[in-house]
Design a protein around this nucleic acid. Structure first.
Lengths: 220, 220
DNA sequence: ACTCGTTCTTGAACACGTTCAAAACTTCGC
DNA sequence: GCGAAGTTTTGAACGTGTTCAAGAACGAGT
């Protein structure tokens, strides 16, 4: 049989994620998780050093699902706008069950000390996975994106995705309709905006933006 | 003599802000604040319904100072890039003493339920004050900003400012050098980018961006 | 001076996330 | 089988933000 240990870990994680979805982050107390899972509080802490780590579990799971669903959605779409839409919409899709809990999630994720912080070290793997989705969206698009943009674009789009996620968290409209609208409107605009890179005057500005991004990124 | 009540309130607020600056958000416990101020814990709660409200006090104070310092810095600067730089740099200046505490501040501010949430109702006044700074930066600039942009630009710049603040929080470089660099690089780029609005092909994209912003803003 | 209503102040109590020493259980060499 | 070493589990305890019933201080009217 599967390791008893691993079984307990899974049990705690499953119960926690279920409760996150059903009653939200704050109401899901460690004591409640333990009781529902039929273990002691201390035992839950044996597997997860903090409540934050349970959130990380959720983050990873959502990320994994996004990768799968997005890859599927990208299969028959060629143009950049469509591919962007696909990636963003599927992202929102997989997060949807956790919407009410989203703000607490973000509040947790945003502190540098958190293991869930998307910019932090503890979630390098998850971030890379997410970045890979955007890279594939950019690279697989035809007509192709201007070569000089191709390198940095995925990262910038991922950053924009973080912004969309933030918007989604605050979106109180029914079914987060406004976020959908934002995606549908912004994706084609980004694509069109990028195509302007051919215009000489614009091209220079683009170059400087990229230069700035690179400068700031590598500290120095 | 000044109201005893108001005196106590000020005392608690002053002690709290001082401790925030000196030992950070988490180490500044309500009990410690109360003890340092020579009042009971319950008494502190009589004036501030939560620790968050003490953060709001800080937010308002920082905002007020920014308004003053920014107005001064704008006095002899005409071009948009320079005016943007002035507003952003002074913003970072007034926040500087609280840098180490910044991440907790953001984590607090970002939850919709928080009184400090910059998008929320409880801080409408503070947000308006901040927005006013950007409006004055845009309106007072010469050469003037394209008319069709003038209405929405301050709000978009304010949004970008929130992004800069976020970057600043994560900026671990000495004296937040990287944030300064980002501002110095981005401000002229924004100004140059806006001047592209005259180019016909670009103009259309700009129109659509503004249209999207408006659509999303007013829900519908 | 005395009362009544309001404002201010107190400190014990609550639920929470988290810690930890000790107990229970497992595994493995022999 | 047996004991030792490791792994897993327990629940009481700590410090935190927050609440609240009770009391103290104050002010105005008589």
């Amino acid at each position: 049989m599967a390791q008893k240990s691993e079984q307990t870990r899974q049990l705690v994680a499953d119960v926690a994620l279920k409760m996150f979805r059903e009653i939200g982050f704050e109401k899901t107390t460690m004591r409640a998780i333990a009781q529902e899972a039929g273990v002691s509080v201390g035992n839950a802490y044996y597997y997860f050093a903090s409540k934050d780590e349970l959130v990380q579990e959720l983050y990873i799971q959502v990320q994994d699902e996004h990768a799968v669903v997005a890859a599927q959605a990208l299969e028959n779409v060629q143009d950049l706008a469509g591919r962007l839409k696909a990636v963003l919409h599927t992202g929102i899709d997989v997060m949807a069950p956790y919407h009410q809990f989203g703000s607490d999630f973000i509040a947790t994720a945003i502190r540098p000390s958190s293991p869930v912080n998307p910019f932090g070290e503890a979630s390098t793997a998850a971030r890379e996975a997410s970045l890979a989705i955007f890279r594939s969206a950019v690279e697989g698009s035809s007509p192709a994106v201007a070569k000089k943009l191709r390198g940095d674009l995925p990262e910038l789009l991922w950053l924009a995705y973080m912004g969309v996620a933030l918007f989604w968290v605050y979106d109180r409209s029914e079914g987060q309709r406004r976020t959908r609208k934002l995606i549908n409107g912004a994706a084609p605009l980004v694509a069109r905006g990028l195509s302007l890179a051919k215009i000489p005057g614009v091209s220079k500005v683009f170059d400087d933006v990229l230069g700035l991004v690179r400068t700031v990124k590598e500290d120095s």
